[in-house]
Design a protein around this nucleic acid. Structure first.
Length: 743
DNA sequence: TCGCCAAGACTTTTT
DNA sequence: GTCTTGGCGA
């Protein structure tokens, strides 16, 4: 009898999916079917073990992973997962905190502050405490506070061994007070209070621990201490906890993630069953071998031997460009070659880099070449000013005590309320022990009969007008649907004419507002609270980026993304650029071995995204805002066995002899077959070069330029190096580029 | 109070 | 090279 649930699993996967009760630790190498195991396990519990979905909690890190899991499992079991808790750590905690708000220092309709809001709040706390922002940068103070929360330390428990720590602790305390006054929590609070609630409240702990017979966790290596403790509490009664992860792919240390939680798990649950998934279904063996060369240099991990039945595959192409522009051109030209030869489609390719700043040159090169591309997770939709404005209006309606939102929108669009007036309002409100929002509402409703009217003076009328508007929204939010409320806010404040000045940017801004409105329509039946929570907890990759990338993928475009954003994805051909000391590994990790190990894992994650072909690219010289710097090749390159690499590019010190190979343009030789597999272009074999150094040429895409060099390759193709006025150096295939000789 | 302009900072990754 | 911040004038 065929078994749709188990038939197509390999022995290890099967072992994991059908494991009995208890603690199961699945260490899943990249491409080893981790998601599959997790979804099948869930389906197996429900279908085969008759566990009611109500008894299960399954946590992930991204909304994308959560909804993917939900879809897959729903498909497998052919019914809805009633009562299940399935979602991100943050969303699950938010649910817990709203339910149990009675035991917490905030109300159940708390708002979630995003990193922008957190930043503003830290700054305000520091100003209140008269701490010099030049000496203690708010970003780093905030990072320190965040780290304390991740370690479950309250302001009172924060260490004060140094002056710096003492400053952080003081700001932390003030910051917390302000959050509470705003009835707000930050990202870290969700986990912090979730863990604290269960730790300090035995009755509640028992309530949830008894309910959740099974706890399942994805990306376990990315958990921080708060998350780890939360999981321990949740599984403290039935002790059935199934975690899937890979220490080697832990790349969020800076956010408090501690891959050593994997080791901690083994120590805390000595009876746990440990299952290794080592068969890789994604990459060729060459790619896996290279990945192993890189990751084996790290310690404190469970060694894994990834293997593939996909064959050896092509060698990895290493390309050293003269500068960052040439680096980008190499990537784009190579892809153009495939696309021109119809050997691949644009969506087969991804270009990965360490920092977002690196994407610019690459984007430019793609633009010039007319190849469609899209960015993953770069500029954040919801960090856009206009989007944030609207969100803050809505948050204010939801929770008038939200001072951060109030301050942001009280003068949007400008309505004569400035710093002075705002300060008056805040002072008057504080005198009465109320929030500015409440005072504002009172002014709006009572106008000059309001208790606040006399103490504010001249500008009370302006405040009252705005207050009346706000009161109108608050009063009607129960009757109005979410979208109607949305529209009403827009009309009342005259937002369209404010942002849309009919320039391109204006249109763009208004388009973003419309996009947000579309998002709101999805939440019609769930209401404002859920909409706002979702906006705060949904990462940018998750929301409309998804729709955007989906539609753009159909249109077939190359994916540009950071190495961090690449985790969990796969592409036929992957370019990793910027393999230079200081970039990858990043200069900031130079002095810390742990950080360096993480850079290595980041590279490892990048390598293992490639299914068929990997390109490792660097530039000898690159410009960092104006200045040009000469860099050393990344130390990670040296770790990869020479036999796996094919050198291309300007200069390959160790490989001067194979000059021919250096000049090869196009896909690498296939190591497993004798005949070089190379894209052949449509042109007839050229016997002598048509273009000569010094010639002036014109190309359709790049305009005019000067030929630097031209030569005939082994395959008969003529490659021409041209310096274009518009884009600088380019190496093109004559038969493809259609260069016109200018007299 | 608001909008413009110039100087300065800043580039690691983001649930 | 780009975004943010702060100062200054209207």
């Amino acid at each position: 009898m065929s078994d749709l649930l188990l038939d197509d699993l390999n022995p290890q996967q099967n072992l994991a999916v059908t494991a009995g009760d208890g603690q199961i630790l699945v260490l899943a190498g990249p491409g080893s079917g981790k998601t599959r195991v997790l979804t099948r396990r869930l389906a197996y519990l429900i279908e085969r073990q008759n566990v009611p979905s109500y008894d299960i909690i399954a946590v992930t890190f991204t909304n994308k992973a959560a909804s993917e899991m939900e879809n897959r499992v729903t498909n497998l079991v052919q019914r809805n997962l009633e009562g299940i808790w399935l979602g991100t750590f943050h969303a699950m905690c938010a649910r817990l905190l709203r339910r149990e708000a009675a035991a917490l220092p905030f109300n159940s309709n708390f708002v979630i502050f995003d990193s922008d809001d957190q930043q503003t709040l830290v700054k305000r706390a520091m100003r209140d405490l008269k701490i010099d922002e030049k000496i203690h940068r708010p970003v780093s103070v905030h990072a320190a506070i965040s780290a304390l929360k991740n370690d479950l330390l309250s302001p009172a428990e924060a260490p004060t061994r140094s002056y710096r720590e003492e400053v952080v602790a003081r700001v932390y305390a003030r910051y917390e007070d302000m959050l509470r006054l705003n009835n707000a929590v930050d990202f870290d609070d969700l986990l912090f209070w979730g863990a604290k609630l269960l730790r300090e409240n035995p009755a509640l702990r028992e309530k949830y621990a008894m309910r959740f017979r099974h706890v399942l966790v994805d990306e376990f290596q990315d958990t921080n201490l708060a998350q780890y403790e939360l999981l321990k509490h949740l599984s403290s009664y039935h002790k059935n906890i199934f975690v899937v992860g890979d220490e080697d792919q832990s790349i969020y240390r800076w956010r408090g993630a501690d891959y050593r939680n994997v080791l901690r798990f083994e120590k805390d649950f000595p009876d746990c069953e440990k299952i290794l998934l080592e068969q890789n279904y994604r990459s060729t063996q060459v790619i896996l071998d290279a990945a192993r060369c890189v990751i084996n240099q790290n310690h404190n991990r469970t060694p894994k031997h990834l293997f593939s039945d996909r064959g050896q595959g092509n060698k990895i192409v290493k390309y050293e460009a003269v500068d960052d522009r040439a680096e980008a051109n190499f990537v784009v030209d190579t892809i153009a070659g495939y696309l021109g030869g119809k050997k691949a489609k644009a969506s087969d390719f991804a270009v990965m880099y360490r920092t977002n700043a690196q994407s610019r040159l690459i984007e430019e090169a793609f633009m010039h070449a007319g190849i469609p591309y899209h960015l993953v997770g770069a500029q954040r939709f919801y960090g856009r000013r206009e989007v944030k404005d609207i969100i803050c209006f809505l948050r204010l309606v939801e929770n008038p005590s939200d001072e951060v939102s109030l301050q942001r929108v009280i003068a949007v669009p400008p309505r004569g309320i400035g710093e002075k007036t705002l300060a008056n309002l805040q002072f008057a409100a504080a005198q009465a022990g109320k929030s500015s929002g409440d005072a504002l509402l009172d002014l709006g409703r009572q106008v000059d009969r309001s208790e606040f009217w006399p103490s504010i003076g001249r500008s009370a009328g302006l405040l009252s007008d705005f207050g009346a508007m706000l009161a109108g929204w608050v009063d009607s939010k129960a009757q109005l649907s979410l979208v109607s409320l949305f529209d009403r806010v827009l009309t009342d404040v005259g937002y369209e004419s404010y942002v849309n000045d009919n320039t391109d940017e204006g249109e763009d801004r208004w388009e973003n507002v419309q996009e947000l409105r579309r998002l709101a329509t999805d939440f019609q039946d769930r209401g404002l609270t859920e909409f706002l929570q979702n906006l705060a907890l949904v990462s940018d990759q998750d929301t409309l980026k998804d729709e955007e990338t989906d539609s753009q993928r159909d249109a077939s475009s190359v994916t540009l993304l950071t190495l961090h954003a690449a985790k969990g994805l796969e592409f036929r051909q992957v370019f990793i650029v910027g393999l230079d000391e200081g970039i990858l590994p990043h200069s900031r990790s130079r002095d810390d071995p742990e950080e360096m190990a993480e850079e290595r894992r980041l590279f490892y994650v990048g390598i293992t995204r490639a299914k068929d072909q990997l390109y490792l690219v660097r530039a000898e010289r690159r410009s960092t805002f104006g200045d040009v710097d000469y860099g050393e090749p990344s130390r990670f390159l040296a770790d990869i066995d020479d036999s796996l690499i094919l050198n291309q590019g300007k200069r390959s010190a160790s490989r001067r002899a194979s000059y021919e190979a250096d000049m090869t343009w196009g896909p690498a030789y296939n190591t497993s077959s004798r005949a070089p597999r190379r894209v052949t272009f449509t042109s007839p074999q050229a016997k002598s070069s048509r273009y000569k150094a010094g010639m002036r040429v014109r190309s359709a895409s790049w305009g005019e330029g000067i030929v630097l060099e031209s030569k005939i390759e082994a395959d008969g193709e003529e490659t021409v190096d041209v310096h274009f006025e518009s884009v600088g150096f380019k190496r093109v295939i004559a038969s493809l580029a259609n260069l016109e000789i200018v007299e």
